[in-house]
Design a protein around this nucleic acid. Structure first.
Lengths: 122, 122
DNA sequence: GCAACTAGTTTACTTTTCGTAACCACCCTA
DNA sequence: TAGGGTGGTTACGAAAAGTAAACTAGTTGC
């Protein structure tokens, strides 16, 4: 990002290379930043999780939200939907290799966030 | 996070330690995840920036949004507002030490996001 | 047959967010 | 005295996001 502010020949201020719309941080946030989105991704980090289990684990998010976020993550190829050969039929969601690359920033965020509470407590 | 799903003595499924409302990732997102929020923070990483300059740099965000986000970040003590002794009076915003700790996750997010484009281009 | 499971979808709302555009008050320079 | 600068505030409204709760449709065990 070389964005900066300069003056043109008439002495008027203008931005050089402004963040045209979404700079990388903004774009990233729009993928991972929706409500519950990061949380869902994080719950899949160790193993595939079933729809209803996700729903139970993430107290506060409605099934509708879970569905919506899963579709969103699927669209971005961060997770995969797999139908299980069980009766009754089950569905599990798991990270794709690509989705796994997002865990690093989520983990960084988790650490940052957890340190907040410790600091506040003291 | 030890959240998991088990069965109780009647065989009914229940979540153990579900993410009661906001797990750390969720909480972090609610601080840094608003539209333009991360972007603004990132623009302050090298030096204090003035209000109107921020507004110019972040094309697409209105002054109203900039104000709103700045107040939000200030409330969380991630940035500081300082009135400059200039005529006409100026105002600059700068990171607090605490705000500086958030740069790490933002940088991680930026990297992740930038790699996306490279991958997509190929 | 009843209850609980599977994975969702649908409805009907409320709330929040975001954007536009105008406006304020004051300062400085040409 | 006009135009540009400073740093915002305000009102209005559209659109998006989020919620709870009911409902589908099929399966399984008691």
């Amino acid at each position: 990002m070389k964005a900066r502010v300069t003056r043109d020949r008439r002495g008027r201020k203008t931005a050089v290379e402004p963040c045209a719309e979404p700079c990388p941080i903004e774009r990233g946030m729009r993928i991972l930043g929706g409500k519950w989105t990061g949380s869902i991704l994080w719950h899949l980090k160790d193993e595939p999780v079933r729809f209803n289990d996700l729903s139970r684990l993430i107290g506060g998010a409605s099934k509708k939200m879970i569905t919506e976020r899963l579709r969103h993550l699927e669209a971005h190829e961060l997770i995969e939907r797999q139908v299980l050969d069980t009766r009754p039929v089950g569905v599990a969601y798991r990270l794709t290799p690509h989705g796994r690359t997002a865990l690093k920033c989520l983990d960084e965020l988790r650490r940052w966030s957890e340190r907040l509470e410790v600091d506040e407590a003291s």
